[in-house]
């Protein structure tokens, strides 16, 4: 789910940092001071999600939550993702420091896709919050998985089987992530719908 250090060539991870910096800068434009605590809480949630494991026989998957980040924070998810990933790499060893840029780009673009889909649903999202949240999270995992597969595929002939395996490994993640995000969005819609509008106090 996260690309490790050492797999990508220096020009690729270098380009990843450039793309991630551009995305983060766009995520930060027009940020108001009172928005930062909310971004920080959801960054913490994004970090903690990788500690929540589910048994999906024959394997065990952990949550990603970038779909939820996209739904709640919109464009601001681009600020939460690099920080969450850096903390995961530093404290847990998930992913890596040199691949931070590439991972940020993959997760950032997929979170944005999920967020755009959720916003497109408009009123339907508040009437059917479970399905809207599940679809947005599923789409975000699918896009992240496809981008990761494309990255591995581009490394050459020998990596094609690994790429296929990586895509396959995303399917149980997609199922669990869609269910958990769907129920969480449904809960938030019932309890505090203001959180889902992407607006801050």
């Amino acid at each position: 789910m996260h690309l490790s250090d050492g797999i990508l060539a220096p020009p690729v991870w270098g380009a990843g940092f450039v793309a991630a910096a551009a995305l983060t800068a766009w995520g930060a434009t027009g940020l108001r001071e009172e928005e930062t605590p909310r971004v920080a809480v959801f960054t913490a949630a994004f970090f903690c999600a990788s500690l929540l494991h589910f048994k999906v026989p024959p394997t065990s998957v952990h949550l990603l939550f970038h779909g939820l980040l996209g739904v709640v924070l919109g464009r601001r998810a681009l600020l939460a993702i690099p920080i969450g990933l850096a903390l995961q790499a530093a404290l847990l060893g998930h992913g890596g420091m040199t691949t931070l840029g590439v991972n940020t780009t993959l997760f950032g673009l997929s979170a944005l896709t999920g967020a755009a889909f959720y916003r497109c649903l408009g009123g339907a999202a508040s009437r059917r919050p479970f399905w809207a949240g599940a679809a947005a999270a599923g789409l975000a995992v699918l896009v992240a998985g496809s981008l990761l597969t494309a990255c591995l595929w581009s490394l050459g002939e020998g990596f094609k089987l690994v790429a296929q395996y990586a895509l396959l490994a995303h399917l149980p993640v997609l199922a669990v992530e869609a269910l958990v995000t769907g129920f969480t969005v449904e809960f938030l819609q019932r309890v505090q719908p203001a959180l889902l509008t992407g607006r801050t106090p």
Binding site: V41, V180, T184, F187
Partner: peptide, 8 residues
Amino acid sequence: ASVIGVSL
């Protein structure tokens, strides 16, 4: 999911 929602 409810626990996550409440915590958030």
